[in-house]
Structure formats: C-alpha cells, structure tokens
Design a protein around this nucleic acid. Structure first.
Length: 486
DNA sequence: ATGTGC
C-alpha cells in the first residue's frame, strides 16, 4: 500500500487523489484528504492534517472528515474542510463554519467582449474603487438602522429586491434563492448588528475582492452554453462575506459554548473545535443566528453587484440590461446547513459544515436552479489575482464522496505575516500591470502583499483534482482584467 | 476573516 508520512501521521492511499488517516483511539471515523501528491506535500506543511484528524472526534461525524485539495490550516477546523455531523445526536460547531459566515462568491455575466473593455481598464478600476466600499471598518452602500438590519437578517435578498437593489432573477440564481430558512435575527447580538449596520454593501479586506475577468477557455460547450459563458466574454467576480456582523456572531457563540457545554469541550482534542450538542438550546440559537448572518452576506454581495451594474452603465454609457449583466450564480463557502443525505442506504439529516468548501450538487438535484438543473450546480472557484478563476459544475460523484461539495479556491501557501515579508504591495501591482495587463487598486499595500499570486497554491492543480474525482467538473476558466480590494 | 486579542 502506498503511504505518505506527515509529521507523525501516516496517510494511506485509498486510490488516486484519496488519502486516508485510519481510525485510531478517539477518532469516530477515518479522515480523508482529497489531493494529488504535489498538493499533499503543501498541505502537510502546516497543521491541516492534525486539524482534520481532530475533527473526527466531533460527536455525530458521519463517514469521514474530509479535506479538499485546497485545504490549509484554519481556526480549529481546516479551511477546505467538510464535516457532516448528525443533526439529531451530533453537534454544530462555529469553528467548522468559520469566522466569516457565508463568505462566498458570485459571478455576474455580461455580453461585453475583452476587445470592448481593453483601453478602459483604468477608468473602470478607478470607478469601481470609488463606488464600491472596501477596506477595514465601516462605510457601506446602505446605512441602516437596527430595524433594517433585522429585516435583512430575516429576509435576505428579498429585502434587496423590495428596495430596488435587485431584480427577480437575481434571487433565482443564488444558493437558497438568497434567503436561508430558519434565520432568527433575535439570536444575533446587538453588538453584531451595530457592527453590521454601516457595512451593508462593502467588500471588507483580506482576500476579498471584486474582479472584472475575461473568459479564456470553455472546456465543456454544453454546460458553458447552459451557464451563458463563451470565450472572450467579460464577467465580474465578487468575493466577500458577512463582515463584522458574522465575525461577532461566531465569536459570541464560541464564548457561549465554552461556558455552557464545557463537558463536550473537555472531550475534544482542540478547544477551537467547540461545538453545541444537537438539540440543545444553544445549537438552535447558533443555527438561527448563523442563518441570519448568511442572509446578511447575501445582501452584501447583492448590493455590491447591483452597484457594479451602475458603474458599468457610466463607463460604457449603456444600460446594464443592454449589457446583459445577469447573475450567473452565488454560492457560499463558509456555512453549515441541515441537509438530508443517504448514508449506508438510509436517509439522515446532517449538519453539513462546509468551511472553505463549496456546495457542488450534481445535475438533477432539486436545489439546483431550474436553468441549470440538467447540467448541475454552478461552482465558482476564485484563484489569485494573477492566476484567474474557474467555473465548475457539481459532479456526479459529489454526493457519494463529499456530501455534495468541492474546493473553494487556490488555498494559501503561507501566512499573511510571511507574505508581507516576501512581497511589497507596490511591486506586486506594478508587475501584474506590466507583465499581465492586470490593473489592481487597493486601500492598503499590505493587503496586496498578503494576496500576492505567489502566496497561493496552483488553482489549476486544485481544479484538476476536483475534476478527476468527479466532484466538480471544469466548465470554464477566466483571467483577471482589473481587481479592487481592501 | 476581523473596529487584526479579551
């Protein structure tokens, strides 16, 4: 048997791209890492393997704890992790959702071609930067009172539709149609709402960005046509989350769990995996609050997208409708959701935690929007600002292998601190412009250094593994034109 | 990710 030794843990190769940490004392199930050998080498350089192993100690964990090919170390649970925990006798874990609740991506199509945009890059990037709020702290597209925040938390993108920031079709092309059921605004703290009320419609910082891209390759003509993608077409990618509101919500519930469920906490190998037992009041409260924060993030991305339509109208002097600026899809990559899955022939309700992992439901699944039902759910995988991104579709094997999930990005190779030692923001920007005609504008040079292309894994390799495993199949590739970030 | 730790 082929094995891989990673700092005291021996992984067994089950088959190509599937590595397993066999069950040992304390582990309720084996752990799996889905990766090529090259990616596994990179994954083994931080605490990812130890973390995915720890995750198998969570009560109710089903089949395997799974790490995606873009996995890296996170808070307790690795980024790129999937954990399906029984919704009746398992638990729910804020650290397995992530601090940025409903961090996710949406892609908007246009009918513009790269030729039509060339020569306007600087005007476009300047106008986007001036009109889409970004960076740390406050200042959003909408400044709201607490009553409005409550409505956004309860209704999601439906609120944006009522207030002129969306059209009907935007809702249909969003995961959960832009409104997660079971949101309970009363379970989101006043402090979280105060942090969120002036951040509605703002990118934030870190790896969040808005990028104008051109489609360079369509690998599957049939699915590409269903997604409305063709070569040379201009698209817009928006990557952001729930800002301070989600962060505060995660923090609030981690502290409550530590106080109220210390018994469970003491039996876990890492305090950062803190979890509320299924059926407890706190599990219900966190689920209601998390669902509300999910809605907040969808409104956030919706407002940014709609503002982008207005920016394009000014730059290209045409209506956004005439440029066919329609939402292709919006998909979350930091969430937990109660879902029914077939486990050993039986239907079970599970809290599926996807942290840095994207839902990738296959063709025919009832939760795939009608327009895409026959081909599979669109999956958007952002790469670095120098590499471009991918659109995949949910693959045939995703329900069997990964509870309907795949990767979420390129995955970091080094810490933010290390990145700042290796790169200088201004140099990175200049190089992108001179060598690749990519125009980047950011609030902070440090952020550009932290997000330099060299700090990321090879997105082509991540997507290749997803495609080979049949969990998410390659549909199209994009390349950056211009990018704004915090 | 984040009013960059509570």
């Amino acid at each position: 048997m082929t094995t891989f030794d990673a700092d005291g843990v021996t992984l067994e190769r089950v088959r190509e791209y599937v590595w397993e940490i066999p069950q040992e004392e304390g582990m309720r199930v084996p752990a799996r890492i889905l990766a090529s050998e090259a990616l596994l080498e990179e994954i083994s350089e931080d605490k990812t393997i130890e973390q995915i192993k720890n995750t198998t100690h969570l009560p109710g964990i089903t089949n395997h704890a799974i790490c995606m090919p873009d996995g890296h170390q996170g808070y307790g649970f690795p980024v790129g992790g999937v954990g399906a925990l029984d919704a009746e006798d398992g638990c729910i874990s804020p650290g397995a959702v992530g601090y940025d609740i409903n961090c996710g991506v949406r892609m908007m199509r246009t009918n513009l071609t790269y030729d039509e945009v060339q020569g306007h890059e600087e005007e476009l990037v300047d106008s986007l930067f001036a009109n889409v709020p970004s960076g740390l702290g406050g200042g959003g597209i909408v400044e709201a009172g607490v009553d409005t925040v409550d409505e956004i938390l309860a209704r999601g993108v439906d609120w944006a539709l009522e207030h002129g920031h969306a059209v009907e079709e935007d809702l249909l092309h969003c995961e959960d149609e832009g409104m997660r059921e079971g949101a309970d605004p009363d379970k989101v703290s006043q402090k979280a709402k105060d942090r969120g009320k002036n951040q509605i419609g703002s990118l934030g910082s870190g790896n969040h960005f808005l990028e104008v891209q051109r489609v360079t390759d369509v690998f599957d003509d049939e699915v590409g046509a269903a997604f409305g993608l063709e070569e040379d077409q201009i698209v817009v990618l928006i990557h952001c989350g729930s800002r301070g509101l989600g962060h505060q919500t995660c923090n609030d519930y981690l502290r409550k769990i530590e106080q109220q469920h210390k018994g469970l906490l003491d039996r876990l190998p890492d305090k950062e995996l803190a979890a509320a037992p299924a059926g407890s009041q706190l599990a219900e409260d966190y689920y209601g609050a998390m669902n509300a924060a999910i809605n907040f993030a969808w409104v956030n991305r919706q407002l940014i997208m709609h503002r982008t339509r207005k920016v394009f109208e000014r730059v290209f002097d045409r209506s956004w409708e005439s440029m066919e600026m329609d939402l292709l899809y919006d998909v979350a990559h930091n969430i937990a959701k109660k879902e029914m899955h077939t486990v050993n022939g039986a239907e079970r309700e599970l809290y599926v935690h996807r942290k840095g992992a994207t839902r990738a439901f296959p063709a025919g699944h009832p939760e795939v929007p009608k327009a895409y039902r026959d081909v599979g759910q669109p999956v958007i995988i952002p790469g670095s600002m120098g590499a471009g991104s991918y659109v995949l579709r949910g693959g045939e094997n995703s329900m069997d292998l990964t509870f309907g999930s795949t990767a979420h990005g390129a995955g970091r190779l080094m810490s933010r601190t290390q990145a700042k030692n290796e790169y200088w923001g201004g140099d990175v920007q200049q190089e992108l412009e001179d060598q690749q005609q990519i125009y980047v504008k950011a609030q902070s040079g440090a952020t550009v250094a932290e997000e330099a292309p060299g700090v990321y894994k090879d997105v082509d390799e991540v997507v290749r593994v997803s495609d080979e495993l049949g969990i998410g199949d390659k549909v199209a590739r994009t390349f950056p034109v211009c990018n704004i970030k915090g």
